[in-house]
Amino acid sequence: MPKNKTHSGAKKRFKITGSGKVLRERAGKRHLLEHKPSKLTRRLTGNAEMAPGDSKTIKKLLGK
């Protein structure tokens, strides 16, 4: 039976922690930052944890 391939789009967007949680970047911090308040851009910094329902799908895409 052939090996399963990792979804290359998911591979770039998500990270799995040692305990099995799925981390993602927050949306809205790529472009047009000049007119967004600094308060908002600071809030969008860092990683967020995925909802449990979505993380099941993402783990499948990543071959976990």
Rank of each mutant, 00 (worst) to 15 (best):
residue 19 S to P: 09
residue 4 N to V: 03
residue 9 G to W: 04
residue 8 S to I: 12
residue 32 L to R: 04
residue 58 I to L: 10
residue 58 I to N: 08
residue 58 I to M: 08
residue 29 K to T: 09
residue 7 H to V: 04
residue 54 D to Y: 07
residue 51 A to E: 15
residue 16 I to L: 07
residue 14 F to G: 05
residue 51 A to W: 14
residue 57 T to I: 06
residue 61 L to M: 09
residue 10 A to I: 00
residue 18 G to D: 08
residue 15 K to R: 13
residue 41 T to P: 00
residue 44 L to Y: 08
residue 22 V to C: 06
residue 9 G to D: 12
residue 43 R to E: 07
residue 37 P to W: 03
residue 27 A to K: 06
residue 34 E to V: 14
residue 5 K to G: 08
residue 55 S to N: 01
residue 54 D to M: 05
residue 6 T to Q: 08
residue 1 M to V: 00
residue 47 N to K: 07
residue 54 D to L: 13
residue 28 G to E: 00
residue 58 I to C: 03
residue 12 K to L: 05
residue 50 M to S: 08
residue 51 A to I: 09
residue 55 S to R: 01
residue 14 F to E: 07
residue 53 G to F: 01
residue 56 K to Q: 02
residue 4 N to S: 10
residue 3 K to L: 14
residue 38 S to Y: 00
residue 15 K to F: 13
residue 39 K to L: 01
residue 17 T to D: 11
residue 59 K to F: 10
residue 39 K to A: 01
residue 45 T to F: 01
residue 64 K to M: 11
residue 38 S to N: 15
residue 45 T to E: 01
residue 3 K to D: 13
residue 35 H to G: 14
residue 31 H to Q: 11
residue 4 N to K: 04
residue 55 S to L: 06
residue 40 L to W: 02
residue 48 A to W: 08
residue 13 R to G: 02
residue 32 L to Y: 05
residue 18 G to K: 14
residue 21 K to M: 02
residue 32 L to K: 12
residue 25 E to R: 15
residue 34 E to P: 05
residue 36 K to P: 15
residue 36 K to F: 02
residue 38 S to K: 10
residue 8 S to R: 02
residue 48 A to F: 08
residue 42 R to L: 00
residue 12 K to R: 11
residue 53 G to R: 08
residue 5 K to C: 03
residue 15 K to E: 15
residue 27 A to L: 14
residue 55 S to M: 12
residue 21 K to E: 02
residue 8 S to A: 14
residue 25 E to I: 09
residue 49 E to F: 11
residue 40 L to K: 14
residue 3 K to Q: 10
residue 7 H to L: 09
residue 45 T to H: 01
residue 32 L to G: 12
residue 52 P to N: 02
residue 13 R to F: 05
residue 22 V to Q: 01
residue 51 A to G: 14
residue 4 N to A: 10
residue 58 I to G: 07
residue 37 P to E: 10
residue 41 T to K: 07
residue 25 E to W: 14
residue 27 A to H: 15
residue 16 I to C: 07
residue 4 N to R: 11
residue 45 T to P: 04
residue 51 A to N: 15
residue 12 K to V: 10
residue 43 R to F: 11
residue 11 K to M: 11
residue 48 A to V: 09
residue 3 K to V: 04
residue 12 K to P: 08
residue 58 I to H: 02
residue 40 L to D: 09
residue 3 K to N: 04
residue 21 K to S: 06
residue 15 K to H: 13
residue 55 S to V: 05
residue 35 H to Q: 13
residue 51 A to D: 15
residue 35 H to N: 12
residue 19 S to N: 12
residue 60 K to N: 08
residue 39 K to Y: 00
residue 63 G to I: 03
residue 17 T to I: 01
residue 52 P to L: 06
residue 25 E to T: 05
